[in-house]
Amino acid sequence: MLSIGVLRAHLLAARLAGPVAASREKSLLSYRLFAARDPGVTLGLDPKWAWREQDLLRLMADKCGVSDDPDHVSGPDVIDPERTLSALDAFAERLRAAAADRVPVLFGTGHPHRLLGFYAELADALSAAGCLVLSPAQGRCIDITTRFGVRTYSLDYVRGVALVREPGARRAWSEPGAHTHSPLPVRMALEGLAEAGGPLPELVVGDHGWVCGAGQLGFEAIGLADTNDPALFVGEAEGRVSVAVPLDDGVRSDYYRPLTRYVLNRACLSQ
């Protein structure tokens, strides 16, 4: 069993928490864009409340541990490891409950280069516990607006985890998929399930648009988010995201393995 002390030390050493790669400038820009309802930052969430930039700064200070000083405008951002640990416990509890009830679960990531292995281990464990890990609408094409214009991607699954690929990309671990913040993939997956007559997921696990897009449609969703992704924490504050775990979502993929072990142990899903 990985102890809390060992995991806390790992979070800091790997820069999953503590000073992280996301800059203060980038986080503050995200808060400004979210306050302006920029769809590239709201990630499929339609906020119920009016969120000003200062409201978001206070929220992120509470949820992540970033500085709430509006005059602090440069340097690395900071995540409080205690908040990460607390959220990981809540995340694990939702997985434990899902496994106990053997509910259908949908996994999806917009960060496949970093987080695919993390989610895949969780999907394997829930499948072994009797949950149906869903993989709807595989191969369907999605037009997603990017900073390079509209691009067409296809929905794919690796070890039960949904992601998007550019057309012609090889289906291999060497090309795990494309980075996206869009909620369109989860909408397409859910549409595919509805067309097929279900079952629909009782829990969606992921990040970015997968969590916010599902939560906006009324599905229970849990996931991981960095300091420059306020949408998940707004969703949690408004009751449409069950758990948002604050951590750096862009470090080396192997740095998430201790988190996987910790979550599976806490969820009583270790094999």
Rank of each mutant, 00 (worst) to 15 (best):
V105A: 04
F91T: 01
H113A: 15
P104R: 02
S86Y: 11
R94W: 10
A92Q: 04
A98W: 01
A90L: 14
D101M: 11
S86F: 11
H111V: 05
D101N: 13
V103Q: 08
S86M: 11
V103Y: 08
F91L: 02
A90P: 03
A87G: 11
R83L: 15
R102T: 11
F107N: 01
A99S: 09
A87N: 09
A100R: 15
L88P: 08
L95G: 05
A90K: 10
A100N: 00
D89A: 14
R83N: 10
A97V: 13
P112I: 02
D89W: 11
V103C: 12
A100S: 12
T84Y: 00
F107V: 00
A98L: 00
E93A: 15
T109L: 08
V103I: 15
A92G: 02
L88Y: 02
G108T: 03
L85N: 09
A92L: 05
P112H: 06
G108F: 09
G110L: 01
H113W: 14
S86N: 13
D101R: 15
P112V: 10
S86I: 12
F107I: 05
A90C: 06
T109H: 10
F91V: 00
F107R: 07
A87Q: 14
A97K: 07
H113V: 09
P112S: 06
G110W: 04
L106V: 06
S86D: 15
R102V: 07
R83Y: 10
F91E: 01
H111C: 12
R102N: 11
A87S: 15
T84S: 15
H113S: 13
A90R: 14
P112N: 07
T84G: 12
L85Y: 10
V103E: 05
A97C: 02
T109F: 04
T109E: 07
A87D: 09
R94D: 13
A100P: 05
D89M: 12
D101C: 03
T84L: 11
A87I: 07
T84A: 12
A97F: 07
L85H: 05
G108I: 07
R102I: 01
L88A: 10
E93K: 07
L95Y: 01
S86W: 13
G110S: 09
L88C: 03
H111E: 14
A97G: 06
L85A: 11
A97S: 13
F91P: 00
A100T: 10
E93Q: 13
H111K: 14
V105I: 10
L106A: 03
T109C: 08
G108W: 02
L95T: 06
A92D: 03
A92R: 03
E93P: 01
R102E: 11
E93R: 14
G110Y: 06
L106Q: 02
L88D: 06
A99I: 05
G110T: 05
H111N: 15
A99P: 11
G108Y: 01
P104L: 06
P112Y: 06
A87L: 12
A92N: 00
D89V: 09
R94H: 12
G110V: 00
R94Q: 15
A92M: 02
